[in-house]
């Protein structure tokens, strides 16, 4: 165990432990979307979990830092908060904010982070950029909502962990990056492997992957 100071508070953690995890374990919340406990190499793609570490001249993503003895970390500086707010505002600028009709309502990670950072869900400064089509319904069992997705990749990670080989992957590039179920697997096959699993549905922080008709039911309810 080593000692480090986070926001002026001394905590203990195993040497080499993921800094983000160490903070979360000690009830210091750092906004994050793409990190999962136990990941060897976190993707560091959501760009939320920034912290300042003494000795580093720039903010760093805490999910890519390993705990060292005597480390001095700050999670709540104005610079950090501004970066996190910008990242969130960017994500919300491509997000179809329609919480009332979304199964993630009230348990949504974006809502949680927005509340934490005191950011309105409908940022006024950035233009709203939505993609077509609204729903990708090629999967026999699941629907994918590109305008909800934050591209954290957790669904791919859990699918791969469970099956060894994922049934979904990132496709296309840049602004048009998407999650794709592309495959020639017969519907029955997917049905059986996916029906008893649904790990991707459960892990999704924003309900971008849902069981077919799930959201309709909520809307009706």
């Amino acid at each position: 165990m080593v000692k480090l100071i986070i926001d002026n508070k001394e905590i203990e953690a195993e040497e080499g432990k993921n800094l983000l995890q160490a903070c979360l374990d000690n009830n210091i919340y750092i906004p994050n979307l793409c990190y999962l406990h136990g990941m060897d190499n976190p993707p560091a793609s959501c760009r939320m979990c920034f912290v300042e570490i003494e000795g580093e001249h720039k903010p760093v993503t805490s999910c890519t830092v390993r705990v060292k003895d005597g480390m001095v970390v700050k999670t709540d500086t104005p610079d950090i908060r501004q970066l996190q707010r910008t990242a969130l505002q960017l994500l919300l600028s491509v997000h179809d904010v329609d919480c009332a009709h979304c199964p993630a309502n009230k348990k949504c990670e974006l809502q949680r982070i927005a509340k934490f950072l005191k950011v309105g869900l409908k940022p006024k400064r950035l233009e709203l950029l939505l993609k077509e089509p609204e729903i990708d319904d090629e999967h026999p069992l699941l629907d994918y909502y590109p305008n909800r997705c934050v591209l954290c990749g957790k669904c791919i990670h859990v699918c791969k962990t469970k099956l060894g080989q994922p049934l979904l992957a990132f496709a296309r590039r840049g602004f048009y990056t998407t999650i794709s179920f592309y495959g020639e697997k017969p519907a029955s096959d997917l049905n059986s492997s996916c029906k008893n699993c649904l790990a991707c549905v459960e892990i999704c922080p924003v309900s971008a992957i849902t069981l077919k008709n799930d959201s309709d039911q909520i809307a009706e309810a």
């Binding site: 760009r47 960017l90 994500l91 600028s93 950029l129 591209l151 590039r173």
Partner: peptide, 21 residues
């Protein structure tokens, strides 16, 4: 750059798109 962004991280994927727009 917006065309060539890999799309992995939030700032580049969405931010450069706003700059371009």
């Amino acid at each position: 750059t917006q065309n060539e962004s890999c799309g992995k991280c939030t700032f580049c994927r969405i931010g450069t798109r706003h700059l371009l727009n």
